[in-house]
């Protein structure tokens, strides 16, 4: 039987809103797709685009970046700075072939457990449709080939 593709999603979430929102989803026993690996950072302002690339390098098929709604930032303006950065980085990623079906952004507050479930389900489904991001992993083939074979990346 062929194994069904389960996408690996890396989600960078801020400590104060989205992480707490995801926690609420859990304590409320809301059912959600289990594909995301959450990485908690103090604030979306801390999220350097190099994190996103690092996630893809490490085998992520999709990345989600999520934080507090504008105006809700624990540090007042972290998410405003982040938003401006994302506007730029998103276009750069798109221009180089990491399109918006792999790179997602959202605002999820501490009270929005339900929204978190919707976001994570939506992202997972989009990335599942898109398939594994082997094209990205293959870029390292001149050095990683033996390991890629071992891990079953299609070459």
């Amino acid at each position: 039987m062929e194994e069904k593709f389960e996408p690996k999603i890396v989600a960078f979430v801020c400590n104060w809103c989205t992480y707490t929102g995801a926690d609420l989803a859990g304590t409320s026993r809301l059912k959600q797709q289990p594909n995301a690996r959450l990485i908690r950072v103090p604030c979306t302002g801390r999220i350097d685009p190099v994190f996103i690339l690092k996630a893809f390098e490490s085998g992520a098929d999709g990345v989600l970046v999520s934080g507090c709604h504008p105006g809700d930032c624990h540090y007042n303006a972290g998410n405003f700075h982040a938003r401006r950065r994302w506007i730029m980085f998103r276009e750069l990623a798109e221009f180089t072939g990491i399109d918006s079906s792999r790179l997602h952004f959202s605002w999820v507050s501490a009270s929005e457990g339900k929204k978190w479930v919707d976001v994570i389900d939506g992202v997972t489904e989009t990335v599942r449709q898109k398939g594994p991001f082997d094209q990205y992993r293959k870029m390292a083939r001149n050095i990683e080939l033996p390991i890629m074979e071992e891990e079953g990346v299609e070459i």
Partner: peptide, 25 residues
């Protein structure tokens, strides 16, 4: 080490992407 020093296409990609982003605006 954020950007791998090896010169694989992927590490070169990361380097050039980050340089382009640091030059944004």
């Amino acid at each position: 080490r954020w950007i791998e020093s090896s010169s694989t296409t992927r590490a070169n990609f990361t380097w050039n992407m980050i340089r382009a982003f640091h030059q944004a605006g």
